[in-house]
Design a protein around this nucleic acid. Sequence first.
DNA 1: CCCTAAACGGACCAACAATTCCGTTTTTTG
DNA 2: CAAAAAACGGAATTGTTGGTCCGTTTAGGG
Lengths: 203, 203
Amino acid sequence: MTDAATPLIRKDAARNRALLLEAAEDLYATVGLSVTLKDVARHAGVGVGTVYRHFPTKDDLLDALFADRLASATDSARKAAADPDGWRGLVRYLEDSMNMQVGNCGLRGLVVCTAPSSPLAVRSREEIAPLVQQMVAKAHQQGTLRPDFEAADVYYIQIALAAIIEATYHTDPYLYRHHLKLFIEGMRAGGHREPLPDSPESL
Amino acid sequence: MTDAATPLIRKDAARNRALLLEAAEDLYATVGLSVTLKDVARHAGVGVGTVYRHFPTKDDLLDALFADRLASATDSARKAAADPDGWRGLVRYLEDSMNMQVGNCGLRGLVVCTAPSSPLAVRSREEIAPLVQQMVAKAHQQGTLRPDFEAADVYYIQIALAAIIEATYHTDPYLYRHHLKLFIEGMRAGGHREPLPDSPESL
DNA sequence: CCCTAAACGGACCAACAATTCCGTTTTTTG
DNA sequence: CAAAAAACGGAATTGTTGGTCCGTTTAGGG
């Protein structure tokens, strides 16, 4: 085997790749998905060509970048799903996942994104969905969650709060927690007096 | 006066302006703020030059377009503020304003927009803010609103729900009403047992 | 009917982001 | 150390969008 003798990539290439990921991590987290690959290159102190040699396309960079974030989101969901108290697990998962998004504009963009988005994000959602499903089912059995709450609602709450974070994190990064509280109160079993009509025509 | 004798603009100009507004209305509502002025021109059956003669910049078109929408939002707020029952007014205002956004992608973009956005949208917000303030104050006096709910929260709820609508209206335009319900339940006075810690560090 | 000014259409320009290409530099290895 | 391979930098290309310019057409008063 030549694997020890000849490293698969040259030393400088490896260094630049690391530099690139670091710079991209930094920029995407603080600025968001709108950063240019030219920006990333400059931030890393290399040329654009180098970026494209390591990551054939912008999405490839993003995938490499968010792979671990998304993995840790799945982790969080797994832990939450393991909680014997469905309600508590659900609340913790919401808290964890939103907390993760406060510090990372790019991640937010990825989550809120309506478009097909990166296959990575899609896969992550597919991994997490059954876990959320479990929490919701458990909470329903335990009678702590309002009966008309569905697993998909968790995802929509995340989208909603991401939008609030987007609008407020400059001023007050944790303001969103107040609205998270509001949502959580709304999720509770036993609250729904005076139901809203299902479609506004009836108003 | 020559106003009756010589119309301020030529007949064809007037017709094209109307055509343009109609086309823009249509496109912005169904596609969103991303439509190109070239698209609008094509849709209206005129050249781009004509668009720019009538509306020097894209924002001018948008302003002309959304002026009446925003006015009707203010109306809705005024009516809601007039309701002697603060809670009911608040709920109605939320319902009205969100219902307005379901059918109009462009409007949604304008509302959610974090950036300075058009001066028109800003003015509209400034007009509506004191009305919302009134509703909230009244509901607080009447003890129907949770004590830590502030007027600004109404705006954030709108942003949050707009994001949900954005993600779901293709599939089910009124799904957002379910989440509106959740928010409304969370707004109620008397719900907040087990408060969330204010910042996640404590978790 | 004809002339003038207003209005028109769309080619053209500038700015910007993604991506490609290629001559030059660096690493590796014999 | 020298040559080949691998990687590099950044100019150039492509595609897109907001916006301008100007030669041509048309409305409408005399």
